[in-house]
């Protein structure tokens, strides 16, 4: 039995050669539709990334008391680096802050006389990338945690930034993901119908197979495999074309002030993309072969 199933599945692959022009045209149509869908997905994915990069971050600025022990502050900086959701940390000792201030002010900013008696405190600028739904609670808890650190005088963060982060997250969840789902449905329908139409020319063959006593599974298995293989091949070709487009456009917008770099689809989306095409190839073949 296993041998027969294997033989029929292989037949499904080799059957693609039987009507080469129809299959090539179907493959071209599936590839182009999948490529268009993939292109849209690529844009949405990069838009989502950019939105999170640009607006999805929350920053806390921590000011230590000027008299706080430098050694203790440095230990705290190390522990801050372990915090969850931390995307970036910038730290400044009082001396570093003074030096930076002098650099920025140039010739007019000679504060050398302050060295040894520096009033500037140690500070840290923490940037978090938070994707949780309950960012408000997270921000409050983080604020309280930072404020209670030994030697800390003040912690500040901009609540507007939190609102912005939540806004981007909401936009991403309510617009981008539904758009991706909608795209998936459109892609599935168009690819499905294309493969279904290509299978209809085999109705004569199906009728003859029924006539000579072939069981339903015997007729359907090779054709379902053919449909799935067409979907898979179309998907792989579309992804290759997409990779070519991504590589050629990668640095097109990577200049100030945009600094946008086109990333390729992550592996999870690539696999989902292929899975949609394979499943639709399979299902559409099944629909085309349903007994009337």
């Amino acid at each position: 039995m296993f041998r027969i199933v294997l033989k029929l599945m292989l037949q499904g692959v080799t059957d693609i050669r039987r009507h080469p022009w129809i299959q090539v045209l179907t493959l071209a149509a599936v590839t182009l539709v999948a490529f268009l869908g993939g292109l849209f997905l690529l844009v949405l994915h990069n838009l989502d990334l950019e939105l999170h990069r640009a607006g999805g971050d929350i920053q806390f600025q921590i000011y230590w008391q000027p008299e706080a022990e430098q050694e203790m502050v440095r230990t705290q900086w190390d522990s801050l680096r372990e915090l969850e959701h931390l995307a970036e940390i910038k730290t400044f000792s009082g001396d570093q802050a003074l030096e930076l201030l002098m650099q920025r002010l140039g010739g007019t900013g000679d504060f050398a006389w302050l060295q040894g008696n520096n009033p500037l405190p140690a500070t840290a600028l923490l940037t978090f990338s938070v994707r949780d739904d309950d960012q408000q609670t997270w921000a409050k808890a983080t604020y309280l945690h930072l404020e209670t650190l030994e030697g800390v005088e003040k912690v500040s963060f901009n609540p507007l930034q939190l609102d912005l982060a939540r806004g981007w997250a909401r936009f991403s969840n309510q617009v981008i993901w539904p758009l991706i789902l909608f795209l998936g449905v459109v892609l599935a329908l168009v690819v499905g119908n294309t493969i279904k139409l290509s299978q209809l020319h085999r109705r004569n063959e199906v009728e003859i197979l029924r006539l000579v006593g072939a069981a339903r599974w015997y007729i359907q298995l090779p054709m379902l495999v053919s449909g799935a293989v067409l979907g898979l091949l179309g998907g792989i070709l579309a992804l290759l074309m997409l990779k070519g487009v991504q590589l050629s456009l990668r640095d097109l917008l990577h200049f100030p002030p945009l600094w946008l770099r086109l990333d390729y689809l992550p592996s999870s989306q690539t696999l989902a993309f292929l899975a949609v095409l394979v499943v639709m190839g399979f299902l559409s073949s099944w629909v085309a072969l349903r007994e009337k």
Partner: peptide, 16 residues
Amino acid sequence: IHLLRREVSVVFQDFK
């Protein structure tokens, strides 16, 4: 039905 068709063969005018 395929089991019936294994016992009953058919020939058509349009050959099939």
